[in-house]
Design a protein around this nucleic acid. Structure first.
Lengths: 160, 160
DNA sequence: ATATCTGCAAAGACTTTGCATGAGA
DNA sequence: TCTCATGCAAAGTCTTTGCAGATAT
């Protein structure tokens, strides 16, 4: 997909990517990407808005939404729904990246935990499944989602 | 979970289930369950509302939402998010039921396809993964979600 | 009889749209 | 320069809440 080369040249490595899609690189887009790449959290649009508000007091929530949409469309960011009514965003590590992970979602407090364990086994099964399903349903599979739901350590204790 | 006995006795098989949770059985709840059990579609609250409107012209959308919440809480119905901004509901077939399935979601037209293929392999992997994750993160896993995203046959053709 | 449930209307939360101003290439 | 991006305000959508009247047990 990308070159993998992230050595700084003044511009973020994503600059070419954005431009390649015919979009302009702006300070706001730069800022959103900066935040996205520097966190392992699962930020909502408003989270990003608040974090940016210090640096860019005039940035609008609308711009965050529009930027995120652009980033999702160009494949730089994944959009998730963890069931709390607001979308969460995360910089995309492709399914073959060593950082590729899935999520544990606490249905009590909403805490999200990333895990990379079992990913190799999962990947193997997913590939088989994807191939089988593609053939059977003539479905061109581009992505998958795996999430586990349950109670995190804290909520599990509190319940007792 | 349930007895598995669904032979009619005047009352729906779910009657005892609802009552067991201390809820009352009402015509509206009966009606929602009737629809849920008779379809393989993935209905939104409004879908159900419209389907019921013929039989019960006075039923309110609010009641649908409240009933669905109740059914989800008592485990009779699953709630899904397929990314189109509205929740979808489906009668629950437990993870060990032969009808247990996962979904293929067309990101273009929104079509949902159920599949049961590979479920056995998936179940095996999921069980392993659940056990491993439970131990590692002290996370009490109660449920899982697997979805594939891509283009359905029709949308894939149209795109060319 | 009475605690629960329903339906209506209104409110709430997140997200998108319209439009004039501002900025990138 | 000229098209694209931004910010504000307003609108849109789905969902939840408040409350008086109706219903199940």
């Amino acid at each position: 997909m990308q070159s993998g080369c992230r050595r700084g040249r003044g511009l973020g490595w994503w600059h070419g990517h954005i431009r390649g899609y015919g979009y302009r690189m702006t300070a706001q887009r730069e800022a959103v990407l900066e935040i996205m790449t520097k966190t392992r959290e699962h930020l909502s649009a408003e989270d990003i808005y608040h974090q940016l508000h210090n640096l860019y007091p005039n940035i609008g929530l609308t711009t965050i939404y529009r930027t995120l949409e652009l980033l999702v469309d160009t494949g730089l960011v994944y959009k998730f729904d963890f069931g709390d009514g607001r979308a969460r965003y995360e910089i995309s590590e492709g399914p073959d990246s060593p950082d590729h992970h899935h999520h544990l979602v606490c249905t009590c407090c909403g805490k999200i935990t990333n895990y990379t364990d079992f990913i190799d086994k999962e990947r193997k099964l997913l590939n088989e499944t994807e191939m089988g399903l593609s053939k059977k349903f003539n479905f061109k599979i581009t992505n998958h989602l795996i999430q586990f739901y349950g109670l995190c350590e804290k909520c599990n204790k509190d319940e007792k």
